[in-house]
């Protein structure tokens, strides 16, 4: 039974991975990655990693992929270009060589348990209780570092993607005006009192001239 589940999940994981790089539209790539992640969660369950499988589905396939879908929908996929001729041939060859090398390195190692089913299963292996105990005792420092890294990433993403002045087309009200008004008339200056200066009709209306938009303040 576990062999059947393993082969279904493994085929799903590998097919999803191939789909991610084979599909042209990035939107479908993200959907294929969700297939891959769910299959991988099934493999985690077979390895008795219940908590990792659950967080894989909830955090990865749920939250992170929704973020991806939002960005793909916002950016719009971009140009669907193939890479240069050299990489298009060398890339798959490199991937194949890497797969062979990794398989040789891991399966050809002299680890005795690698063909077995793993260590003896004790009840409670991989449950949130054990994981949490490890996180708060033995791995407390990585746990705290991870929280700081999350905070830095969140702030960094907000700084990177925030809306800057000058990047978008501005509305009329944001344009800069220079109001070249003449000296105010009928305010009781000596020249007016002496009748030397008589206001003309256009002097009663201040002259408004658009001199341009505020300069682009952004740069990254």
């Amino acid at each position: 039974m576990s062999a059947v589940i393993f082969f279904i999940a493994a085929i799903g994981a590998i097919a999803g991975a191939i789909g991610v790089i084979a599909v042209r539209n990035p939107f479908y790539s993200v959907l294929m990655l969700i297939v891959h992640l769910v299959s991988l969660a099934a493999l985690f369950l077979l390895l008795r990693a219940e908590f990792v499988a659950a967080s894989q589905v909830v955090v990865y396939a749920g939250a992170v992929m929704v973020l991806y879908l939002f960005v793909v929908a916002y950016v719009g996929g971009g140009a669907q270009l193939a890479s240069g001729p050299v990489l298009r041939i060398l890339g798959p060859l490199f991937a194949l060589a890497l797969a062979v090398e990794l398989c040789i390195a891991m399966l050809g190692s002299t680890l005795k348990g690698i063909s077995g089913k793993g260590a003896h299963y004790v009840l409670g292996f991989g449950t949130p209780r054990h994981i949490g105990t490890l996180f708060l005792t033995k791995y407390l420092f990585p746990f705290e570092i991870a929280s700081i890294v999350l905070l830095v990433a969140a702030i960094g993403a907000v700084v990177l993607a925030r809306r800057r002045r000058g990047l978008e087309t501005m509305g009329e009200e944001q344009q800069e005006y220079r109001i070249s008004a003449h000296p105010p008339v009928n305010t009781g200056t000596i020249a007016e009192g002496a009748g030397i200066r008589v206001p003309t009709p256009e002097q009663l209306e201040p002259e408004v001239e658009v001199i341009g938009r505020p300069r682009d303040g952004g740069g990254w």
Partner: peptide
């Protein structure tokens, strides 16, 4: 199932990802 099968799947998935990083040009797909 032997642990080796899982390791083989992980190696294949890793290699597919490495090949994709090399061949695709859209940063989203990378």
């Amino acid at each position: 199932m032997g642990i080796g099968w899982f390791l083989a799947v992980s190696a294949i998935v890793f290699s597919i990802g490495a090949g994709g990083v090399l061949t695709r040009r859209n940063p989203l797909v990378v």
